[in-house]
Simulated scan of single mutants.
Amino acid sequence: MTASESPAPAGRVRVMLVDDQVLLRTGFRMVLAAQPDMEVVAEAGDGVEALQVLRSTAVDVILMDVRMPKLDGVETTRRICAEPDPPKVLILTTFDLDEYAFSGLKAGASGFLLKDVPPGELLAAIRSVHNGDAVVAPSTTRRLLDRFAPMLPSANTEPQHKELGRLTDREREVMMLVAQGLSNGEIAARLVLSEATVKTHVGRILTKLGLRDRVQVVVLAYETGLVRAGGHG
């Protein structure tokens, strides 16, 4: 029995590759094919094709290029994430501070990766977003948001979001640390809490604010002024 004929392991992550560079898709496909818990179920060379394929293919995680013909990755991500129960999207960028990265996160992406990401980091990122975590390194988050600070509210403005008032003091504290890019484990160590307790707090924050994942927490925290670019962290 060949590997392709062997039974698929439970919980296998179904991945879609969306990029107009065939060689890049081939490289990613080879890396993913070697993993027992992943499989590439679809590919597309542009956003229009990706949307068409998704109508008939179940996908868990999408690796999405931003610069593509017909429909770019940001708008494609926005349309995908507007659908009920959408797959997770990881934006692929050429540069660490690609101007599309922040737009991709706002559009609903769960994080972004450099196209030359080492295989181990690529696989870890796919598994992380599949499990509901964000993939934006703390240092990159801060530099990204510092760069795009002019697009965000003035530091003199008070936090504005009608649901922020529903958060407890502890939840606001956790939210601010999430916004700085800290993992649940790092937040637990900082606040002297168990990781399970932090995960519970994060879940309540997402529910109260109507947010999908940690990346949306980061964006909202900066947009509302709860955390200032260049300030905390």
Rank of each mutant, 00 (worst) to 15 (best):
V135R: 07
L144A: 06
V117L: 04
P84C: 14
C81L: 12
E195H: 02
V215K: 04
T141S: 08
L90D: 01
D169V: 15
H201A: 06
A124H: 10
K162G: 02
T224S: 15
Y100R: 14
T157L: 05
V202T: 05
G132D: 00
P159F: 11
A101G: 14
H161V: 03
A33S: 12
I91N: 05
A101R: 10
Y100G: 12
V117M: 11
A109E: 00
V13G: 04
L211S: 02
Q35A: 07
V74A: 12
S139F: 11
L164V: 07
M68K: 06
L152E: 01
A82Q: 13
M64E: 05
D146H: 13
L113P: 05
M68W: 06
V136R: 02
E39H: 13
A34D: 15
A137Q: 09
T141F: 05
D96C: 03
A10T: 13
V219R: 06
T77V: 01
E121R: 12
L226M: 13
Q35R: 15
V227Q: 00
R172I: 06
M1F: 11
V89N: 06
K106Y: 02
P84I: 09
R14T: 04
E83M: 12
R142H: 09
P84V: 12
Y222E: 01
T168D: 12
R170P: 00
A229R: 00
A34L: 14
V31K: 07
D133A: 13
L209M: 15
D98R: 00
L63T: 11
F112E: 01
P86F: 02
R170T: 12
V219I: 10
A134R: 05
V136K: 03
L63C: 15
D65Q: 07
G210F: 09
D116E: 05
M64R: 08
G231R: 05
G225N: 12
I126N: 07
S56Q: 13
F148A: 01
A33H: 10
P84F: 05
T2V: 11
V198E: 14
R142E: 07
L63F: 08
V219C: 06
V219A: 01
P86D: 00
